[in-house]
Computed example of a mutant assay.
Amino acid sequence: MNRSVFVTGGNRGIGAAVAAAFAAAGDKVAASHRSGIPPEGVLGVRADVTAPGEVEKALREAEAAHGPVEVVVANAGITRDRPALRMSDEHFEEVLRTNLTGAFATARAALKSMLPARRGRVILLSSALGFLGSPGQANYAASKAGLVGMARSLAWELGDRGITVNVVAPGIIKTDMTEPLSEKRMADLMRMTPLGRPGTVDEVVAAVRFLASEEAGYITGAVLPVSGGIGMGH
């Protein structure tokens, strides 16, 4: 592989693993980040996906180094968990700005190169909790559910241009975002997971790489759960 790949939130967790895997396969990879450092072999470009124009600027920097983007992975995401009665407007809106509006800005910026080329892969990172809901995560679940409607709308818009748009929906994955979960909450989530264990970032990476591959050329508007069965059927 020798494609130009752009990943948001590529300095930790799933984003870093995705960026590293594409680079290891021979792709030219750039990753946006607000803090930290992306993996070795990945071009880091600083950007806050919630700040107007920043993700567009970062993607243009990546393209100056690697050529027109052919695969974009919108992974940047945050949590601001609170029960609804204690969730401020800012906590709600901040999560939507990052997880949903930021993903839209990322996809829109990439399409400026994909449309003339009449090819491309857009992959959005959602969550099984977007389908199930979760106590204290009305903002997070809303943002992740919104990605599905957005992806399917874009799939309609872009299908005749050879561009696919798909969603990967991880379940409970071992990352720094799940570390704060209490033992009781983790046990409850594992009881809801038919496979009875958390997933690994490598299992999510495999799904992302498949949707970016030539073999997935006839798949668009799909939601691919990597969840051990939690939220199945949605």
Rank of each mutant, 00 (worst) to 15 (best):
F6M: 14
T8P: 01
N11S: 15
N11C: 10
G13P: 07
I14Y: 02
A17N: 02
V18F: 08
V18K: 06
V18T: 03
A20V: 01
A24L: 09
D27M: 09
K28F: 13
V29H: 08
G36Q: 05
G36W: 07
V45K: 02
P52M: 12
E54S: 03
V55E: 09
V55H: 00
L59H: 07
G67H: 15
V73A: 07
A74I: 06
A74C: 08
A74Y: 06
N75F: 10
N75L: 05
I78C: 10
L85P: 00
L85K: 14
L85M: 14
M87T: 09
S88I: 06
E90D: 15
H91N: 14
E93H: 14
E94S: 15
L96V: 04
T98G: 11
N99D: 14
L100S: 08
A103F: 00
A107I: 14
R108K: 15
A110H: 05
K112H: 11
L115T: 13
I123G: 01
L132E: 00
Q137K: 11
Q137M: 14
N139G: 06
A145V: 01
V148I: 14
V148P: 04
A151P: 13
A151I: 13
S153W: 03
A155P: 09
L158H: 12
L158P: 00
T175C: 12
M177Y: 00
M177S: 07
T178S: 11
L181W: 04
L181V: 01
M186P: 03
P194M: 06
G196F: 05
G199R: 01
D202A: 15
V204N: 07
V205L: 11
A207S: 07
A207Y: 00
A212M: 04
E214G: 13
E215Q: 13
E215C: 10
I219K: 00
T220E: 12
V226Y: 01
G228D: 02
G229F: 05
